[in-house]
Deep mutational scan, measured.
Amino acid sequence: MTEYKLVVVGAGGVGKSALTIQLIQNHFVDEYDPTIEDSYRKQVVIDGETCLLDILDTAGQEEYSAMRDQYMRTGEGFLCVFAINNTKSFEDIHHYREQIKRVKDSEDVPMVLVGNKCDLPSRTVDTKQAQDLARSYGIPFIETSAKTRQGVDDAFYTLVREIRKHKEKMSKDGKKKKKKSKTKCVIM
Rank of each mutant, 00 (worst) to 15 (best):
E162Y: 09
E49R: 07
K184S: 07
D173S: 12
A155N: 02
T58I: 03
T20D: 09
V45Q: 14
V114F: 15
L53A: 03
I55A: 15
F141V: 11
R102T: 08
I142K: 02
G13K: 07
T158Y: 07
S136W: 03
K175C: 07
K167H: 10
S106W: 10
K182Q: 10
R41G: 00
D47A: 04
F82D: 09
K165F: 09
E63T: 04
D132I: 08
A83F: 03
K88Y: 05
M72L: 04
T87G: 12
T74P: 05
N26A: 12
K5W: 06
N26L: 03
S39R: 01
D132S: 05
E3A: 06
L53Y: 13
H94M: 14
V14K: 15
E3I: 02
E31S: 11
D57S: 00
R135F: 06
Y32Q: 01
V9H: 13
I163C: 14
V7I: 06
Q22Y: 02
Q43F: 10
T183P: 12
Q61A: 02
I55D: 00
D33E: 03
I187S: 08
L159T: 08
K167L: 06
D173T: 07
E3T: 04
R41P: 00
L79H: 01
T183C: 08
L113C: 07
G12E: 04
G77W: 00
G151N: 12
K128Q: 07
D105P: 10
E107H: 07
K101C: 13
V81C: 13
A83T: 13
K88N: 12
Y157G: 12
V8R: 01
R41D: 00
Q129T: 11
E98M: 09
M188C: 07
L52T: 06
A66P: 08
R135M: 07
L23F: 09
L56N: 03
I55S: 15
Q22F: 06
I100E: 00
E63I: 01
M188H: 11
T124A: 11
R102S: 10
M188F: 14
F156E: 09
D57K: 00
S65H: 11
D132K: 09
V7W: 04
S136C: 07
R123T: 12
M111G: 00
Q129R: 07
Q70G: 08
L52G: 03
G151S: 14
I142F: 07
V45R: 11
L23G: 14
L52W: 01
A134T: 04
D105K: 14
K101N: 08
K177D: 08
S17I: 00
V125L: 07
T58D: 13
K101L: 13
D105L: 11
V9G: 03
I36D: 00
E31Y: 05
S181E: 07
L53F: 10
L19W: 15
E62G: 11
T35V: 15
K169D: 08
L133N: 11
V81E: 15
M72N: 09
K180G: 08
L113T: 02
K147V: 03
V160A: 03
I163W: 00
I93W: 08
C80F: 15
L133C: 04
I187M: 07
D132A: 05
M188K: 10
Q25G: 06
D153A: 10
M170T: 09
G13M: 02
T127K: 06
A11P: 08
K167Y: 09
D105T: 09
T2Y: 06
P110Y: 02
Y40T: 00
D153F: 08
M188D: 11
D153T: 08
N26F: 02
F156P: 11
F78R: 00
K182V: 03
A66E: 10
V114A: 03
Q61N: 03
Q22M: 04
F82A: 14
G48W: 03
D173C: 12
Q43A: 09
I55K: 00
T158V: 10
V152W: 15
E37C: 05
V160F: 08
K184V: 02
N116H: 14
G15I: 01
V14M: 10
M188S: 09
I93P: 02
N86D: 15
T183I: 04
R97V: 15
V112M: 13
F28G: 00
V45S: 09
D30L: 10
T87S: 09
K117H: 15
V109L: 04
A66I: 10
K178I: 08
G174R: 09
K169L: 09
K167Q: 09
I24G: 01
I46H: 08
E49H: 12
R41A: 00
E76H: 15
G15M: 03
A134I: 07
K117L: 15
G77F: 01
K128F: 06
T2V: 04
K176D: 13
H27Q: 13
T74V: 08
H94E: 10
K16Y: 01
V7N: 01
V160K: 06
T50K: 08
V152G: 07
P121Y: 10
G77A: 09
M67R: 03
D92Y: 04
P121V: 11
S122D: 13
G60N: 15
L133G: 03
V109H: 01
A83M: 04
T35H: 15
D47R: 04
L19G: 12
A66V: 10
K16R: 15
S17Y: 02
Q22A: 12
F78P: 01
Y157T: 13
G15P: 02
M170A: 15
N86M: 01
Q61Y: 08
E49Q: 10
D173E: 09
K178V: 08
D126V: 07
V125N: 11
I93G: 02
Q70V: 14
V14S: 12
D153K: 08
E3W: 02
T58F: 00
A18P: 15
D54W: 00
E76F: 14
G10Q: 01
Q131R: 07
I100S: 04
F156I: 15
V29L: 07
R135C: 12
F82T: 11
R73I: 07
F28N: 00
L53S: 08
C51A: 08
E76P: 10
R73W: 03
D92V: 03
N26S: 10
D69P: 01
Y157V: 12
K5A: 02
Q70F: 15
H166T: 12
E3Y: 03
R97Y: 13
I100K: 00
G13V: 02
G15Q: 01
N85S: 04
V29Q: 03
P34S: 15
R149Y: 11
D47G: 05
P34Y: 14
I24Y: 00
L120F: 14
A59K: 00
T20Y: 00
K176N: 12
E98F: 02
K180V: 13
T2G: 06
E107T: 13
E98G: 03
T87I: 12
S39V: 09
G12N: 11
K179M: 05
F82V: 11
E63S: 04
L53T: 06
M170S: 13
F28S: 01
Y71N: 13
L159S: 01
R149H: 05
L19E: 14
K42P: 01
S65N: 09
E143I: 02
L52N: 03
I24M: 05
V44T: 08
G12T: 02
Y71G: 15
F156H: 13
I21V: 03
K176F: 06
K179Q: 04
Y137G: 06
E62H: 06
I187V: 08
G60F: 13
L6T: 04
T158G: 07
C185W: 08
E91F: 14
D92R: 11
G77Q: 00
D119R: 14
R164N: 10
D33I: 00
V45G: 10
N116C: 14
V8Q: 02
L53E: 03
C51F: 08
D69R: 05
K16T: 14
E62Y: 03
K176V: 13
Y157F: 09
T58Y: 04
F141I: 10
V152M: 11
H166P: 06
D69L: 05
K177G: 06
M170V: 13
A66R: 09
Q61I: 07
L19A: 10
G138T: 08
Y40C: 01
D105N: 10
H27I: 10
T87P: 14
V152E: 11
K172F: 12
V7G: 02
Q61K: 01
T50N: 07
G174V: 10
M188N: 14
K178G: 07
F156N: 05
